[in-house]
Design a protein around this nucleic acid. Structure first.
Length: 467
RNA sequence: GCUCCCUUCGUCUAGUGGCCUAGGACGUCGCCCUCUCACGGCGAAAACAUGGGUUCGAGUCCCAUAGGGAGCGCCA
């Protein structure tokens, strides 16, 4: 039997960390077992579904490299299937038409809540066998067993059992003829031959209802695995309405997909003490049985650490390539002059947490700056003039503009003036970068280039003369 | 309110009855390296929710309590 899993998001908002992680687990499971991964867009909510959200979902998956073997299927395009299936259930006595008004139902609900009862449909139309009428709106409800229980073996949580008396007769077709979630899921999982349903733990309570519908169709339900939810820093669920950030926001903030993937997979799943996983490794090692039962809080600091790790260790060509959009966005011209992007990456990779930060920090390699940063100015005092001039002369004579030659030049000037390296390096750093922070001075000078270095040193001498 | 789920350092986790005076990672703090910032190295503080059982022995099994989370729609 080939394994088939699916990711079935509803396009009612941007895809966030929680959703993409269940997609990831689902995807990993099929990739590990050589199965098929299906994408299904659950857009039966006409009110809230948007094209933009669908676009956002696909783009997020593409960015993280979660490719699918079938789909995307859109439920809104399969409405006939659901209607037919519902009719079939009515004929077989597993569903019925209900003409109860929304007003009556809200009233019922309020009353039950006031009585501290669990709100449920009272079965008013359950046994009336009402026919379809064109002049009056009705819904179709599933006829749930009143007694007995539903049990299943969850792959993450173990054996689970629910009393049928806790379930009520849920609406499967709305009065506008659109199907509802719990019904579409079953019809689709059945027709798409889904073998394993890996989804968020917020669906646990839906599972017994869905299993009953499967049974009504005389079909075997798939195997279920409910993965624990992701909580925010405050311990509350990460959701569209609460602190959830779009997956693409991480891309736009300069995170690498490798880092986010690694971070996400490790949130609720583990393989001994290992922290760093390549994509291939995760696929090879992933198993549902290693998923943790408890909900986890997402820690942005750890993501940052992983991002730094991948910025430092991924091929510099790859990083350079990923850096381009950020350079363009910041309008830094890296093509006409200055170091190549790859040289830049090698110089900055150990001091940037994100690609965006790297781009921001690269500015002085490509552009001359207008002024010195405020806290940098204190290094520019008249005392430095002699050795800055000496250094300038020594640079002018320098043929080889390399790290080694530059390092030697700096050291020689320091020796000549009997100063420690730090004493002269910092003022020069300020002179050429405008700030107190940069890669090692020799590397910084090398990347800025001879011409611009000398220009900026002349500029600092002018500045010093004026003060 | 009812139903269901969960509970090891601040956070992510290892741990499947003796190897645990509980290990790793992020973060925090200290030291070293050092031309700044980083990287790196070394080290420290930091947890089995509580109470009962079961057992020769419990973080590991059972039961209660507490705490947290989710669900209870003509949303998904």
């Amino acid at each position: 039997m080939t394994i088939r899993t699916r990711f079935a998001p509803s396009p009612t908002g941007n895809l966030h960390l929680g959703s993409i992680r269940t997609a990831l687990y689902s995807w990993l499971y099929t990739r590990n077992r050589g199965g098929e991964f299906v994408l299904r867009i659950e857009d039966t909510d006409q009110e809230r579904s948007t094209k933009e959200a669908t676009q956002n979902i696909m783009e997020s998956m593409e960015w993280l490299g979660l490719d699918y073997d079938a789909g995307p299927f859109y439920q809104a395009e399969r409405l006939d299937k659901y209607r037919q299936a519902a009719e079939q259930l009515i004929e077989e006595g597993s569903a019925y038409r209900c003409y109860c008004s929304k007003e009556r139902l809200t009233e019922l609900r309020d009353k039950q809540l006031a009585n501290k009862e669990k709100p449920k449909y009272d079965g008013c139309c359950r046994d009336k066998n009402l026919p379809a009428r064109a002049d009056q709106p009705f819904v179709i409800r599933f006829r749930n067993d009143l007694e007995g229980s539903v049990s299943f073996e969850d792959q993450v949580l173990g054996p689970l059992s629910f009393q049928n008396s806790e379930l009520d007769d849920l609406v499967i077709i709305r009065s506008d003829l659109f199907p509802t979630y719990n019904f579409c899921v079953v019809v689709d999982d059945l027709s798409m031959k889904i073998t394993h349903v890996i989804r968020g733990a917020d669906h646990i309570n839906n599972t017994p209802r869905q299993i009953n519908i499967f049974r009504a169709f005389k079909a075997e339900p798939p195997i279920y695995a409910h993965v624990p939810l992701i909580l925010g820093k405050d311990g509350k669920l990460l959701s569209k309405r609460h602190g959830a950030v779009s997956v693409l926001q991480y891309r736009d903030d300069g995170y690498l997909p490798e880092a986010l993937l690694n971070c996400l997979v490790r949130l609720g799943w583990s393989h001994g003490n290992q922290e760093i996983f390549s994509r291939d490794e995760i696929i090879k090692l992933f198993d549902i049985k290693d998923i943790n039962k408890a909900a986890a809080s997402f820690d942005p600091e750890k993501l940052l650490w992983l991002n730094r790790h991948y910025i430092k260790t991924l091929d510099s060509k790859v990083i350079a390539d990923r850096l381009k959009p950020f350079m363009q966005e910041l309008k830094i011209d890296y093509q006409t002059s200055g170091p190549t992007l790859e040289e830049l990456v090698v110089g900055l990779r150990e001091r940037a947490e994100t690609l965006r930060e790297m781009a921001i920090k690269s500015r002085y390699f490509y552009e001359n700056f207008e002024q010195y940063e405020d806290d940098a100015k204190k290094h520019l005092t008249p005392e430095i003039i002699p050795f800055v001039e000496a250094f300038k002369q020594s640079l002018e004579k320098l043929d080889a503009w390399t790290d080694e030659a530059l390092h030697q030049a700096i050291e020689e000037v320091a020796k000549q003036f009997g100063l420690k390296l730090g004493k002269i390096a910092q003022p020069i750093r300020v002179a050429v970068t405008g700030s107190t922070v940069s890669p090692p001075l020799n590397t910084t000078l090398r990347l800025i280039g001879k011409q611009n270095t000398l220009k900026r040193i002349s500029a600092v001498l002018l500045y010093l003369a004026k003060t």
